[in-house]
Design a protein around this nucleic acid. Structure first.
Lengths: 212, 212
DNA sequence: GATGGACTGACTGACTGTCAGTCAATTTAT
DNA sequence: ATAAATTGACTGACAGTCAGTCAGTCCATC
């Protein structure tokens, strides 16, 4: 085949892009390295010139997600025109709306074939978002919006709660169920964990919705 | 090789036992089906007579853990000589002390080679323990020990929080750190989530420890 | 109550196809 | 000239298959 030399940075990104697309379409185990290189139009050897194993490219893909999330959260945490409650809500909004092309990332991740992606994702998210999230909580404590002695644990608890509930919802058939009740429950939990005034998150949510 | 016919139930258990041992020792990916059958002393064909794939036996192993947990939790939930707080504490005690031979299951699962087992485990635990756990919480609400409108969500939140914190702890080097502070934080979170009187879990914990 | 033949389903192990990963050779860029 | 990028045929390992074997059971017959 005609040999095409590209800037390594571009080649690497190219391979990651295709690998990500195929992993999401068919699953990690079901995608062969040979499928990836065929689509990219390079040899098997080139793949292993850039990645030391198939597992390695999975990590590269996850790292990219994590990087995006980290940047997004940092940006929210750094804002100075909104308070801690609004930041936390903006944070959830950001996570929910992160997408990958046309479909929501979160939907992809919950498909059964992607347990591999999903597990790795959830394993790496906390260490990256806990610090800025924790900062938001500490800010809220200083503003007297929250009341907790353990901001880091509260951050972990909220992230863990979110994961658990989102899995739970996806495993249940009647997912459409009653979104409102679930929202109320989640807000209630967050308020309790943070020691915020009961109902205050819902209040803010209504306000924002009204502004749209 | 000499052909030895056994009761299918026994053969199946035998294969699961060895597979579990090898998966925990060397990891799922690093254990070949051929390794398993060599140890059991049967042919490759026998393996596939009992399990439709390598993935399938992993499920069988997880199902066994889940079954044990389910039974343990049900037993605790059914007790009538202790109150809801004591039940919840007994439940955590039970989970923490579940072992597989000499090592604690939770320690095994956090070893890097066992991500596969671990992910599958955490995916399946909630749907099995939420119902009895939820029942304990409702009981606590009736006894006026807890105060929540969303017992199921509270159960999910506590499980999610527990997972998140345990991952967090295992990822940090300085794990030995300050167990007491972490215990206080976890109790604080549980009390908030359940709407229990602040400090009541710690109180019960001290009482139980004193009794020993 | 022994003999044997039909039958079942547990079990065998050599075989196949696939795939992750390697490497010596080759081309391109500086 | 040298280094960096690229090739693709090759290897070894492994999951999964399949045609066939054999232990044990059931039951008809003497």
């Amino acid at each position: 085949m005609a040999r095409i030399v590209k800037d390594p940075e571009i080649r690497r990104t190219e391979i990651i892009d295709i690998a990500e697309e195929l992993f999401l379409k068919s699953g990690y185990n079901e995608t062969a390295v040979s499928d990836i290189v065929k689509r990219v139009g390079v040899s098997q050897g080139t793949f292993y010139y850039y990645f030391k194993s198939k597992e390695d490219i999975l990590n590269a893909i996850i790292e990219r997600y994590i990087y995006d999330i980290k940047m997004g959260v940092k940006a929210i945490a750094a804002k100075d025109d909104i308070n801690a409650i609004e930041k936390i809500m903006a944070f959830f909004d950001f996570l929910n709306n992160m997408d990958q092309g046309k479909e929501k990332l979160i939907d992809y991740f919950h498909e059964d074939q992607n347990v591999h992606l999903h597990a790795r994702f959830e394993k790496n998210v906390p260490s990256n978002i806990i610090p800025p999230f924790c900062q938001m909580i500490e800010e809220g404590v200083q503003e007297d919006l929250f009341d907790t002695k353990y901001p880091e644990m509260a951050a972990l608890s909220i992230i863990g709660t979110t994961f658990a509930i989102s899995h739970w919802m996806y495993d249940k058939e009647d997912r459409a169920g009653s979104t409102k009740k679930i929202m109320s429950a989640i807000f209630d939990l967050i308020e309790r964990i943070l020691g915020a005034e009961p109902g205050i998150f819902m209040e803010y949510a209504m306000k924002t919705e009204g502004a749209k």
